[in-house]
Structure formats: C-alpha cells, structure tokens
C-alpha cells in the first residue's frame, strides 16, 4: 500500500509535467518509427471466451513477437459488436487502439442496423484479415435425417413453414447465412434466435430446432460424437480439417457465405503503422504452428494487403446488404 501511494504520487507528478512535455515529444514520423512504444489495445465487440476471442488469443503471442510490443484485449460487447466499433471509430488514430472486427460488424451490421453513429468504411482504416470462419449446415439427424444438401432440401420442401432453424442471434452470420440458404434453395422455415451459440446448439440437440448454420468449431465435439451431422460447408472451398464434407456451392451453384475476422484502425491511421501491423500479421499467418492451431478448430488463415482488405469489406458489405434485404431482417 505504501509503495502504491508512492507510485500514485509519482503519477501525479507526471501528470503535471506530462502535458507540458507532450507537444515537444510527439511528432508523427517518429511515432510510426518507434511504434509500438506502449501496449496495443485490441478491442473486441464480444465477451471474453467468444469465438473471436479464441482466435485473438491464439495469434496474440506470435503477433506480439512480430510487432515487438505487448497486446491487451479489451471487451466491449453489445449491439452485435457495434459498441466496440463505435469506440474504435472515435479513438485517436495512433495505432494503440485497434478493432478486431468481423464480417458481422463490418459487413452485416452496416445494413442490418438502421441507425449507426459511424460508417463501417469511411470511419475505419482496414489493416488486414486474419481468418476465414466457415459456417457449416448442421442438422439433428433425429429430426431431419438428411445426408446431403439435396436430401435436406427435398425433406424441407415437403413441409414448408413447419420446421425451425436456430441461430446464435438475430442478425448474426449464422442467422443471415441460413436465410440466404433458404432463399437460394427455395425453402420456407421459421427462424428462432438464441442468446449465443451454446443455447442454440442445445436447442438443436433437444429437437427444438432441426438445424442451423453453426461456426465449425462450436459443433466439432458433437460431430465427433455423432450427435449432430455436418452436411455441408458454406465456404467456396472444402475445409482441410474435414475434407469429406462437401460445400453447399457444390449443390447450389455459386452459394457462398463466409465470415472473416480482421483488424481495423480508426480512420486516418498512419499508413506506416498500418503496413507495420499488416506485415506482422503476414509473418504470424505464415507461421506453421499458428496455421495448424487455427486449422485444428476449422479456421483457415486469410492474408490480404490493406488495399485488398479494403476491397473485401466493400464487396462483402454490398453482398450482405442484399441478403439482409431479401431476408427482411432488421435490428433497431
């Protein structure tokens, strides 16, 4: 306690001195060169332990090594990740506040939420994606005993509007991906949102829902035990972890619903810093150990340059906007 007080008193001393010194010390080029000179805060729009968090934790160590600085995670969950997005959009663009965003926060939410206080493109500097997260069409074989997408569609067509599909939340990629599938396959089902993926999977297990789009890692355990059946991936290519499972696109031509996770800075982030983080990401995503760890839970690494990532965000925003419009989903 005594030392604490000393520490605090010296903080007070610093507080008096620091404002006087800051203008002298801070100049832009030097900032980029010495970056990172203090811990980098990575903001996540979902609670600790979420799928996003797991990816963040896996790359944390290697990324710290590649950047030569410490990384701290900050969870600001709420409104489908918008609380965190808003926070970062309004943060100082010094490279010390970075958003770990998703195709949900930057693709879906832009059209799902009617009033956002920020623009997902104009108010952010895209830095680079990290992983592709496949959604997988999962069924409870006791309710819908389908083994292929064709069988699944045939069973569903016989009973329109009768069966329920679950999702991890209203407007989540698991919801809109399935809505997109419904439109593409021409089937009619009732959507039941749950609060997060564990209750949604629980509901599928006890038969409340027949099926859902699930993030691969959340159903791997059930898949191994045979209690749930994975029918097809939503990705354009098969997932290396489970090469026997086809993609939906092999049956429904052109169907693809991928979600990625990636880093964003506030708008006006110095290009030198963006490139520094991006090249650190490149190093990390080429590290075999990281690739294997991510692959073991079904995620594929995804590396893009900042420019490519910017184009991805633009394209996905437009694509999800269409899905949102067709599905009629809204969130206020």
């Amino acid at each position: 306690m005594f030392f604490a007080r000393i520490a605090s008193l010296s903080q007070i001393g610093l507080a008096v001195l620091a404002p006087a010194l800051t203008p002298v010390l801070a100049s832009a080029p030097a900032a980029a060169q010495s970056y990172p000179s203090k811990p980098i805060t990575i903001v996540e729009g979902f609670p600790a332990g979420s799928g996003l968090d797991i990816i963040g934790r896996i790359i944390q160590g290697p990324l710290e090594k590649a950047l030569g600085g410490t990384i701290v995670f900050d969870y600001k969950s709420g409104a489908g990740g918008n609380v965190a997005s808003e926070y970062v959009a309004k943060a100082t663009p010094d490279g010390y506040t970075i958003l770990f965003g998703t195709a949900g926060t930057h693709g879906i939410n832009a059209s799902l939420y009617k009033k956002l206080s920020f623009d997902v493109e104009a108010d952010f500097t895209p830095i680079g994606p990290v992983v592709d997260v496949p959604n997988v069409l999962t069924v409870n074989p006791k309710i819908v005993d389908a083994k292929t997408v064709t069988e699944f569609i045939a069973i569903l067509k016989k009973q329109p509007g009768k069966l329920n599909y679950g999702s991890s939340g209203n407007g989540a990629s698991t919801h809109l991906g399935f809505a997109q599938f419904n439109v593409a396959a021409g089937i009619d089902m009732v959507h039941i949102p749950y609060k997060g993926s564990p209750p949604a999977i629980q509901a599928m297990l006890n038969g409340e829902t027949c099926c859902q789009f699930a993030q691969l890692q959340t159903v791997l355990g059930q898949h191994k035990a045979g209690t749930l059946r994975l029918i097809a991936m939503s990705t354009s290519k098969r997932v290396p972890l489970l090469p026997d499972i086809p993609t939906i696109g092999e049956t429904l031509k052109g169907f693809e619903s991928v979600t990625w996770y990636g880093f964003f800075g506030p708008k006006g982030l110095d290009a030198a810093i963006v490139n520094k983080i991006n090249s650190a990401l490149k190093t990390v995503l080429e590290d075999k150990e990281v690739v294997d760890k991510l692959a073991a839970i079904g995620n594929g690494v995804r590396y893009e340059t900042p420019e490519q990532f910017k184009a991805t965000v633009k394209k996905d925003r437009a694509q999800w906007a269409e899905v949102v419009k067709k599905s009629g989903a809204t969130v206020d």
């Binding site: 797991i54 791997l220 355990g221 059930q222 191994k224 760890k293 839970i297």
Partner: peptide, 10 residues
C-alpha cells in the same frame, strides 16, 4: 479450445 482440446460428448 486454445489448448487444442475439443470439448464434447467424446
């Protein structure tokens, strides 16, 4: 999950 363990019925 981070330790590479897949929790589930197995």
């Amino acid at each position: 999950t981070i330790h590479g363990i897949v929790p589930g019925p197995k």
